[in-house]
Simulated scan of single mutants.
Amino acid sequence: MRTLNSEDVRHFSKGANFLACHIDPAAVFAYEEMIVQALPTGDVRLINIDELDPNDLVVALGFVTQGLAIADMPPVGDEFVRCIQAIEQRLGRKVSALYSLAAGNINGILPLMTGLQTGLPIVDSDPMGRVLPLISQTTLTLGGVRISPIAVTGVTGEHSTLDVEDPQRAETLVRSLVIELGGWAATAMYPCTGQQLAEHGIHGTMTRMIKIGEILGAEEPVESKYVQLMRLLNATRVARARVKHMESFSRDKALGLPTQTTSLTLVAEQTGQIIRLEIGNEILLVLVDGAVAAAVPDIITLLSADLGQVVNLDDVRVGQLIDIFLTPAAPIWYTEAGLNLAGPPAFGLQLQHPRCHA
């Protein structure tokens, strides 16, 4: 078990941004500050998966958004606590620990606040190992773990509990409910045992965010930070490139995918190669001179070349010099089942992933 301090939380926030291909920096910062301010009143305990009893009940927490930024209508603060209580009432037993629905962005850091509020520990595991846009895109789905009951609490405090067998159907229902609830909702889902999470989760992901944040926040040259990130994450730098063109399309998108597709065109500084990023809620595809260099579920991160800090997609501007980093996802995402659930075809891209060989 590890008790987190304020420096850990700030590192956690930076790491959560790095692993989010499309960050909500205002919301992440707000949660970071709330957690740091609340630390004197309690502890945030981070536990390893092997510290759970196999029969312990654990539950995933996460925001689901649809058209409303969390920072535009901040939570009151009790939404996730109410979701946990709803799960306990439905199942007739107490929750022993919490885990994040996704190891990145706002969903990476928010369980820390709920842990402070409830006294429950946070498991150093999650079912994505990164951020994916759909609640059905988890390793728990691949392992056959039930997604429901799902507790949902909306912007205005309205709440509901859903029982649904099929994860894809759950995605449709929850996304529709979120729209009716005002644009975002706090959710608790995938209630499972410690043994199920041990067998089907991705482990060490919370600690990884802290380590990434430590590297990014260090007073060191940018290139030194990059070497450390590559070593920690088995990451590679695809290119250092300058943004030349930005465009948006009104293509049809699959139900549940929150945003329309955008494309960025960049030119590599040293080689002059043309780099194109296809974006639909996150960076889905990286093309270098027309060849596929990376594709979802690869984690693609944009860093400012001068500072080595994460660049949010909304803040990219023409003329900006950016380092494009590729971090491999968890190995399970490159299996046939994993790619079917969260690879290019799941996002309407009919192409073979570059990690697959004919």
Rank of each mutant, 00 (worst) to 15 (best):
L321F: 11
T265K: 08
E214P: 06
A198E: 13
P133F: 05
L57C: 09
D323A: 08
L4G: 03
A71H: 12
T335G: 06
E7D: 14
V311H: 02
L132N: 06
V152Y: 11
L101S: 15
V152I: 15
F325V: 13
Q309M: 08
E32K: 01
D306P: 02
L285D: 00
A188F: 08
T236E: 15
I49T: 08
R317N: 05
L110I: 14
R231C: 02
A38R: 07
L181E: 09
P167A: 08
T327M: 12
P40R: 09
S148E: 01
H159D: 15
A26Q: 13
F325W: 15
T327K: 05
G348N: 11
S304H: 15
Q260S: 12
A198W: 09
T114L: 04
E7L: 13
V9A: 01
M189D: 06
R146D: 15
I299W: 03
N48M: 10
V286Q: 00
C21N: 14
L351K: 09
A218C: 02
A358C: 13
L39Y: 06
V286S: 00
E165P: 00
E247R: 10
I122R: 01
V145E: 05
S136Q: 10
F347W: 06
Q320A: 11
L52I: 07
I150G: 01
F347E: 04
A20Y: 05
D126Q: 10
P258A: 06
T161E: 00
L349E: 01
I147H: 10
I150R: 04
T156G: 15
H245P: 00
F18D: 04
K253I: 14
I106H: 10
G183K: 02
A86I: 01
P328Y: 14
P221T: 03
T236M: 13
G77T: 14
P258T: 11
A268I: 07
A170N: 03
L264Q: 04
A235L: 09
D166G: 04
P328F: 12
S125Y: 03
P344Q: 05
L285S: 00
V318R: 04
D314F: 02
A27L: 11
A69M: 11
T138R: 00
A86F: 08
Q85G: 13
V174H: 09
G143S: 09
N105W: 04
E79V: 04
I87N: 01
E51L: 03
E33M: 12
T156V: 11
A16M: 12
L110M: 14
H11K: 07
G119A: 02
A198N: 10
Q228D: 12
S224H: 13
F80P: 08
A294K: 00
A26L: 13
G343T: 12
I324L: 13
Q117H: 08
A185L: 05
